[in-house]
């Protein structure tokens, strides 16, 4: 069953085509890596999938809702986390969970129960009343992920969630991703760490607004006669013409 399905999706800004006629599907519970160089159009594509930006043309459904006509329904059924902004630094850990649960329409009782459960799973019980700004980056990112899936969305979008995080915490973060996927949450993730591309079930590589390759990491390595995803990425992304202008 596809939880993301897009056909010929295009976004133009003036005469610049940021996303150029992309089509793909993502299955329920899949961990899908959305790769591409800076400026390839990843963020623009992701904003359309999240119902934040109106496509210029094409069709798409996310979590069963039309991204043109039902963007509010799309937003209710997804979670989102980025490297830059995810949590309110001057709210306490529990207050952040409370706030996001409330925004997604959860009732007080389930919020309280879920909060205890998550703090226990993360080993953050002592930090319940700590201000988020006092936490180390790696902890913040793990908490931000838990906030993004707090309302058990159908899909969670992760935009470079592990940038700058230490290698141990990066791996702990990926375990949270695996656990969420095992619960049936679809994970749509961008990263610049090519070892993390290998942790995805399938990946796509965007170049100049188009999807140039999409398959399992194993098949992509075979297809491009490469030893690693790093090599595959390099072969495709260096062909980019438009750079980052």
């Amino acid at each position: 069953m596809s939880v993301i399905k897009v056909e010929n999706l295009t976004k133009q800004f003036g005469n610049f085509t940021a996303v150029d006629n992309i089509s793909f599907e993502v299955e329920k519970g899949e961990i899908f890596g959305f790769l591409g160089a800076n400026g390839a159009g990843k963020t623009t594509a992701m904003r359309m999938l999240c119902g934040l930006s109106h496509p210029t043309s094409g069709n798409g459904t996310v979590a069963g809702y039309d991204i043109f006509k039902q963007s509010e329904e799309v937003k209710k059924n997804i979670g989102y986390m980025s490297q830059k902004f995810s949590l309110y630094e001057d709210l306490k850990v529990w207050e952040n969970l409370r706030l996001f649960g409330g925004i997604y329409g959860m009732k007080d009782k389930p919020i309280a129960a879920k909060t205890s459960q998550i703090l226990q799973e993360l080993g953050f019980e002592k930090e319940r009343d700590a201000l988020v700004k006092s936490l180390p980056l790696g902890w913040k990112q793990k908490l931000a992920f838990s906030v993004a899936v707090f309302h058990e969305p159908k899909i969670v979008f992760l935009d470079e969630p592990t940038g700058g995080v230490d290698p141990l915490t990066r791996r702990q973060f990926w375990e949270l991703i695996y656990q969420a996927a095992a619960r049936g949450i679809t994970v749509f993730v961008t990263t610049h760490y090519m070892d993390e591309a290998e942790y995805c079930k399938r990946v796509s590589i965007m170049v100049d607004g188009r999807i140039e390759a999409i398959d399992t990491p194993k098949n992509l390595k075979q297809q491009f006669h490469a030893e690693s995803m790093d090599e595959v990425f390099y072969m495709l992304a260096r062909k980019a013409k438009r750079g980052e202008n």
Partner: peptide, 13 residues
Amino acid sequence: DEPTTGVDPVSRK
């Protein structure tokens, strides 16, 4: 200071 943070692998090279 962290000139390549958030930069894609091709640009990093």
